[in-house]
């Protein structure tokens, strides 16, 4: 799947073409709208499987005591909570999200659960990360990259702030590897998801965007080559649940 719209003044917002300058605010509106029900909807939509995908991401991260981790587009902080315990007092986790509503929900949730001390919250745009070069041992971006306007710029920014030897993990919806699964998944995404969103979050439109944005996101091999283009090495990906989701991993040396 090509990401060519990024090289013009237009980009995609779901299946629509919109001005590049407007996409960030349109995506922001979607997440302002769904923030409060985000966790409930994630569990409902994925039937809880998103927790297993996130566990797999953490297992592939190689996180250790003392590591500095950036959980980009970290939303409601599922990964941050676990990383916080793994890296311990000597380590640090930064939960970054461009959307302040998501960040507030994440911060409240983690503080209520006693996840404090080594976690910081930063409102940041993935395309221009406000951190010094070579800062992080691990960067994760789970279900966030597809919402970024200029993905190449965001990947380059992540590469810049990653320490040599560090790794980037991109967990994102991808292309199912089986035709039957793909058709069933399409039916579920375009017919069931928006109705579920309307019923639970009173916002069918945002979940229509979710389904469309997944189809517009680069497939496994395209994303792999995008990561390699900005400098990541030893880039590999694992298909999860038949390719509905893929975890890409790349290193900076």
């Amino acid at each position: 799947m090509s990401d060519n719209p990024q090289h013009s003044d237009q980009t995609h917002f779901g299946f629509k073409q919109v001005d590049k300058n407007n996409k960030a605010s349109m995506v922001a509106d979607v997440f302002h709208s769904v923030a409060a029900k985000y966790d409930v909807m994630n569990d409902l939509m994925s039937m809880g499987i998103h927790r297993v995908w996130k566990r797999f991401t953490i297992d592939c991260s190689g996180a250790r005591q003392g590591h500095k981790v950036l959980d980009l587009a970290g939303g409601t902080g599922d990964l941050t909570a676990k990383f916080s315990r793994i890296v311990g007092d000597k380590g640090q986790v930064i939960l970054a999200d461009i959307n302040d509503s998501m960040l507030k929900v994440g911060r409240d949730k983690l503080r209520d659960r006693g996840v404090v001390g080594n976690v910081e919250y930063v409102q940041a745009n993935a395309e221009a990360l406000p951190f010094e070069d070579n800062t992080f041992d691990i960067i994760t971006i789970a279900f966030g990259l597809r919402n970024v306007t200029d993905k190449d710029k965001a990947l380059a920014s992540m590469y810049r702030v990653l320490k040599p030897g560090g790794r980037l993990l991109v967990l994102e919806f991808s292309k199912p590897t089986n035709d039957m699964l793909s058709k069933a998944y399409d039916m579920y995404s375009f017919h069931v998801l928006p109705k579920m969103g309307q019923l639970v979050a009173n916002d069918g439109g945002s979940y229509q965007y979710l389904a469309e944005s997944i189809r517009m996101h680069p497939d496994q091999d395209t994303l792999k080559s995008m990561m390699e283009t900005v400098g990541f090495e030893q880039v590999t990906y694992h298909n999860l649940t038949g390719g509905i989701v893929a975890l890409h991993r790349g290193f900076k040396f």
Partner: peptide
């Protein structure tokens, strides 16, 4: 589905 992660969970 990653079985090891299901078991560890």
């Amino acid at each position: 589905m990653p079985t090891p992660q299901l078991i560890s969970a």
